[in-house]
């Protein structure tokens, strides 16, 4: 039984973490909210007057916002689609008996540990470059016209790179979940005459449902913030072809020095991310009670 003294001690032990996180997130967030109502540009000193929702109005009606919102959806959706389906297939495959399973698993997981700037630049130059890149070489060698990935489909190219980085994560989590599946259940169903597809659909997939949801939610949170991959490959271009919401806020704040506009965009991004976060938190919270 915890005594009163130990309760006080516990509170003291927790408070540094709470205070620091509060200072790190809540304080700047309130500042962002405050800035978002000001006309505040670092290049044109204007006394930073209060302008109400003007920044939001301009941010949300700017055609580049619509473009960025669509691009964000396409990027997040595309990567999720590739990683979840690919991850399920990889996990099912890696769960089967084979030789050298450890080494194969390491090879599949390795991309997750490559820093974003490295994977983006290596893919862009050494693989997707239409002249000297490997894909270009292969296409030319087979007599096809090489694809100019970053010229014709910049967002698609970034989607491929990001998916390569996150496929290992999905695989690893789904594999972990798959390995906790009760083998006897599978064997029983097999004896009852269920074929592989039935076993997958009625036993494995429902068992994986929770892990799949976790993968989708966590990846969405991280994918909404994809930044380095865009910065080092396309700078959001050509035009706004590969600008996402995160990148748009970066452009407004740190390239155009428009603090008010950047802050308004930041608030919009937070609201959108929170919608996802609420679902994720609910799932994790349920797990705490168990």
């Amino acid at each position: 039984m915890a005594t009163k003294a130990s309760r006080t001690a516990a509170r003291l032990m927790i408070s540094p973490a709470v205070i620091l996180l509060f200072a790190w997130m809540i304080v700047p967030l309130v500042l962002t909210l405050y800035f978002s109502f000001l006309r505040y540009n670092l290049l044109t000193p204007s006394g930073n007057p209060f302008v109400g929702f003007e920044n939001y109005y301009w941010f949300l009606t700017d055609p580049s916002f619509t473009a960025a919102a669509v691009n964000t959806l396409l990027l997040v959706g595309g990567v999720l689609l590739i990683t979840v389906i690919g991850g399920i297939l990889f996990a099912l495959l890696l769960d089967r008996p084979m030789f050298g399973q450890g080494i194969i698993r390491i090879m599949v997981i390795a991309p997750f540990f490559v820093m974003p700037t490295v994977s983006a630049l290596v893919w862009k130059n050494m693989f997707m470059n239409p002249v000297n890149g490997i894909f270009g070489r292969i296409a030319t060698g087979l007599g096809f016209e090489p694809i100019d990935f970053f010229g014709n489909m910049p967002l698609g190219a970034i989607t491929i790179i990001v998916a390569w980085q996150w496929l290992p994560f999905a695989t690893l989590i789904l594999l972990t979940a798959l390995q906790s599946l009760d083998q006897e259940q599978l064997e029983a169903s097999e004896m009852d005459g269920a074929n592989w597809l039935n076993r997958f659909w009625y036993i494995m997939l429902p068992h994986l449902a929770r892990a799949i949801t976790v993968v989708i939610l966590i990846q969405t949170i991280f994918l909404l913030s994809v930044f380095a991959e865009i910065l080092v490959t396309t700078n959001g271009g050509p035009g706004t072809a590969s600008t996402t919401l995160t990148y748009l806020v970066y452009v407004a704040s740190l390239l155009q020095y428009d603090v008010g506009m950047g802050s308004a965009g930041g608030v919009v991004a937070v609201v959108l991310a929170n919608i996802v976060a609420i679902f994720l938190m609910r799932m994790i919270g349920k797990n705490l009670d168990a």
Partner: peptide, 17 residues
């Protein structure tokens, strides 16, 4: 849960300040 929620915040939300 509150600590976790700070991790869910997109960094651009606090980039400017």
């Amino acid at each position: 849960m509150w600590m976790l929620s700070t991790k869910m915040m997109p960094p651009v939300g606090v980039l400017v300040p």
